[in-house]
Design a protein around this nucleic acid. Structure first.
Length: 594
RNA sequence: GCCUUCGUAGCUCAGCUGGCAGAGCGACGCUCUCGUAAAGCGUAGGUCGCCGGUUCGAAUCCGGCCGAAGGCUCCA
């Protein structure tokens, strides 16, 4: 029989995080209560608190509609007004099995619970199998709103039935709720898909294909600057750049193991004259070919092979998104062939230092290093070689600590052939995405039988470090658009300055100003349209052009330009030589702001 | 791939229960030649995502497909 558990909580004494979790979880109960009233046949899944709110999963006889959501919300508010107490009870397995005999998901959960720790929670007429963590009564729920309906697999596995998930947001006060909605609105303004279209950086077309980015001239300029920059940084650090084919025989990827592990993520095979070809999903096998073109001495190692090449990955249709998740991408990739683990350590260290320099220059702050580990239990997903995994994981952990970077560890996030360090960042919409990875690979050298000649004259097996730094140009530019909200620093800005002649008669002088600046390879436009000056200034601001140079009679007379900085600050008239020097310096130092 | 929602001019969107396809912004042209965030007037622009069905008649109703957004799963 049910044994009540006394559980009064003084909410005010709890840390805010705990208090919110209780409110959100309790709200999920109230949502389930409302749902059972709307559809008594509803089968209940789980209803946990999440960041910013809660959800509850149900299997229902029909799809939910927007109207249902409104009804549920109204019904929930009614429960709030009644201040119904949440009452926890301990029950036996037999009681639970009897009570939930018509609830298959609850029975599934029950099978994981230990005897003696089976509890349920009742408020009003609604009872749910639950481990606890509530507020005292439904009057303490705070401000909430049901936001969306989505599909979600039971226990998060594609193999299980798909349930309908109702999402809600919940905060302690109405003000905080509204504040959250304002932040969401702000995030939408920063969205790279929106800014990318407004600033004519890139476009996507149905007939070109989902995830196939078309870079427009302005976006291609940003892309080119990033490419030149990273290639120069790599050259300074002893990388050798190569160029390898976009298409290879399928056989190459069979040998590497990609075909076994990732054929579903590859474009379909092309077949002619009995030969099978595939678009490359990644560089590793090609760079291994580069290595194999010669017999290498230990004196040549580490050998750093780099390429900005196109990768082609068949992302499932539901997960292609803007420029941050695409099917054809240009990857800043390199493979470092090392003689031994000591070299691996110093190379990984070098990559981490390069990353810090690059992200620092770009002004990125919201990223974190993640040590991504394998799962020894999962022999299907990962190459089965426990000592190799242990050695790799220990090594990466050691280097992260040595360089003094903060990092966290995550299980079951490794590559199929080895552990890795991932750089994780937050998108404007608040989603966690992987920017790049560093991987230690003992597997491919074995698979391809790679060798080098050691000091002892004998053959030895190298170790490969796979690494990216600026990710794919698509994902990096998407990230930068959101980071800068379209206000690119001068060195990356597609148009760096625009000359605005006040009247048509000032156009020739305007062209002179532009020509002068172009001698320093600055990207300058002259706005010679027949609009009024005010309209042109507004247009330049909307286009987020860093410098607006107004020229009229006074400037033409004095050989100057009236300088206005993006955002509105007026620097007044400047001599052209001074202006050129100022812009050149700002560009060459890659300054983040004027 | 799965669930939900959505698809009308370059962009943002209106178009009720089936009855002549619209607005604002943008583009283009003309007038104006202007001193720091939108001058005035005019013109063009559409297979209402695609294919099929119902109907005298479909942007509107039904089915299929394509694409997008959010979520789930996945992510070398």
């Amino acid at each position: 029989m049910a044994v009540p558990i006394e559980e009064h909580v003084d909410l005010k004494q709890l840390p805010q995080e705990e208090r919110l979790a209780r409110m959100r979880h309790s709200a999920a109960h109230v949502l389930a209560e409302a749902m059972v009233e709307l559809m008594p046949e509803a089968e209940l899944g789980i209803g946990p608190p999440i960041e910013n709110g809660f959800y509850y999963d149900f299997r229902l006889p029909r799809p939910l509609t927007e109207e249902d959501l409104k009804w549920l919300q109204k019904r929930m508010r009614k429960s709030l007004g009644r201040r119904l107490p949440f009452q926890m009870e301990q029950i036996t397995r037999e009681e639970a099995q009897e009570r939930w005999k018509d609830q298959p998901f609850k029975l599934d959960l029950l099978s994981d619970l230990e005897d003696g720790s089976i509890t349920q929670c009742t408020h009003g007429k609604f009872t749910d199998l639950c481990r606890g963590g509530h507020v005292n009564h439904t009057g303490e729920l705070g401000a909430f709103k049901l936001t969306s309906i989505a599909g979600a697999y039971w226990r998060g596995s594609e193999k299980n039935p798909q349930l309908q998930r109702v999402y809600g947001i919940l905060f302690e006060t109405e003000e905080e709720l509204q504040d959250y909605e304002r932040r969401l609105e702000e995030a939408r303004r920063r969205d790279h898909r929106r800014i990318g279209r407004d600033l004519k950086l890139f476009d996507l077309y149905d007939e070109v294909g989902p995830g196939h980015v078309v870079w427009l001239p302005a976006g291609a300029t940003i892309r080119r600057e990033l490419m030149r920059w990273i290639e120069d940084l790599e050259l300074e650090r002893g990388y050798l750049h190569v160029s390898t084919p976009n298409v290879s025989k399928r056989e190459l990827y069979v040998k590497s193991g990609h075909w076994d592990h990732f054929r579903d993520a590859m474009y379909p095979v092309m077949e002619r004259e009995g030969e099978e070809y595939v678009l490359r999903p990644m560089n590793c096998p090609s760079h291994i070919m580069v290595y194999m073109s010669d017999l290498h001495s230990y004196r040549e190692l580490p050998l750093r092979i780099a390429e900005l090449g196109n990768m082609h990955r068949w992302e499932k249709s539901g997960q292609v998104s803007g420029m941050s998740r695409v099917r054809i991408m240009t990857l800043n990739d390199a493979h470092i062939f090392c003689a031994d683990t000591a070299q691996v350590e110093s190379e990984v260290e070098g990559v981490l230092r390069l990353m810090e320099e690059v992200y620092g220059t770009l002004g990125l702050k919201d990223y974190a290093y993640r040590l991504s580990l394998g799962d020894p239990e999962n022999k299907e997903k990962y190459v089965d070689n426990p000592p190799m995994w242990e050695a790799g994981e220990a090594l990466l952990r050691r280097v992260l600590q040595k360089v003094g970077l903060d990092f966290y560890e995550a299980k079951d996030e490794a590559a199929f052939y080895g552990p890795k360090i991932d750089v994780q960042f937050q998108t404007a919409a608040g989603k966690d995405e992987t920017l790049v990875t560093i991987q230690v690979d003992f597997h491919f050298p074995e698979q391809f039988g790679l060798e080098y000649v050691g000091e002892d004259g004998a053959r030895h097996r190298p170790i490969i470090v796979h690494r990216g730094v600026i990710s794919t140009l698509e994902r990096m530019v998407a990230l930068l658009i959101e980071e800068y909200e379209g206000n690119f620093p001068l060195w990356l800005a597609p148009t760096q300055a625009i000359v605005i002649p006040i009247a048509d008669r000032h156009i020739p002088y305007g062209e002179e100003v532009a020509a002068k600046l172009r001698t320093a390879r600055l990207r300058v436009e002259v706005d010679n349209r027949s609009d009024r000056m005010n309209a042109k200034i507004r247009d330049a601001q909307m286009r987020k052009i860093p410098y607006v140079l107004v020229v009229g009679d006074r400037e033409a007379e004095a050989g100057q330009a009236a300088v206005r900085v993006r955002g509105g600050e007026d620097l007044g008239p400047m001599a052209l030589d001074d202006l050129l020097e100022k812009l050149r310096t700002e560009r060459d130092t890659k300054a983040l702001s004027p």
